[in-house]
């Protein structure tokens, strides 16, 4: 084996995987159940009460709450419910100490599947987030409710 080949082999073997990026996820169904001014939140949605303030719903029920360890440069797939899948891909840390993220929310086709039915991107987003900053996706229909997804980079 040539010296150059050995160098390349060593470089490949010692290349560290992408950095882990801890991300918090809250996915919830939002609806109006006639509660008036007293809003209801499932207990595990307490950290995001202020983030949904002002939305026209009075009931928030958790669909998925998780702590994800996404890998920089790799796409992480998270099934939210039977209709939506979330894809996260941390891209890079910027000189401003923000994290560039590629986020997709894929909507699955309704059964029965037709010949040309396939998943489509409900959202396809590239965003820069500061540590601790939240991003909220709203407007995703989920039956008579609305699916709201909130992410926070730790």
């Amino acid at each position: 084996m040539s010296l150059a080949g050995m160098v390349i082999l060593v470089a490949v073997c010692t290349a560290s995987p992408g950095e882990e990026v801890p991300i918090s996820l809250w996915a919830m169904d939002a609806s109006v159940e006639g509660r008036g001014d007293v809003k209801y939140f499932d207990h595990d949605l307490a950290p995001i009460r202020s983030t949904v303030r002002g939305l026209p719903f009075d009931t928030y029920r958790s669909v998925k709450v998780a702590r994800i360890r996404a890998i920089e440069g790799a796409e992480t797939k998270i099934a939210i419910n039977r209709r939506y899948i979330l894809y996260l891909k941390p891209l890079e840390k910027t000189h401003k100490d923000t994290l560039r993220l590629s986020i997709r929310v894929e909507k699955l086709p309704e059964k029965p599947y037709g010949r040309n039915t396939k998943p489509v991107n409900a959202f396809s987003t590239r965003v820069e987030l500061k540590p601790g900053q939240k991003i909220k996706f709203q407007g995703l229909k989920n039956g008579d409710k609305e699916l709201i997804i909130i992410l926070q980079v730790r």
Partner: peptide
């Protein structure tokens, strides 16, 4: 106002 970012979608009523 709380420094979060909101991404919104307005889907057609009969989309689902």
């Amino acid at each position: 106002e709380d420094d979060s970012i909101t991404i919104w979608i307005n889907m057609a009523e009969d989309d689902l």
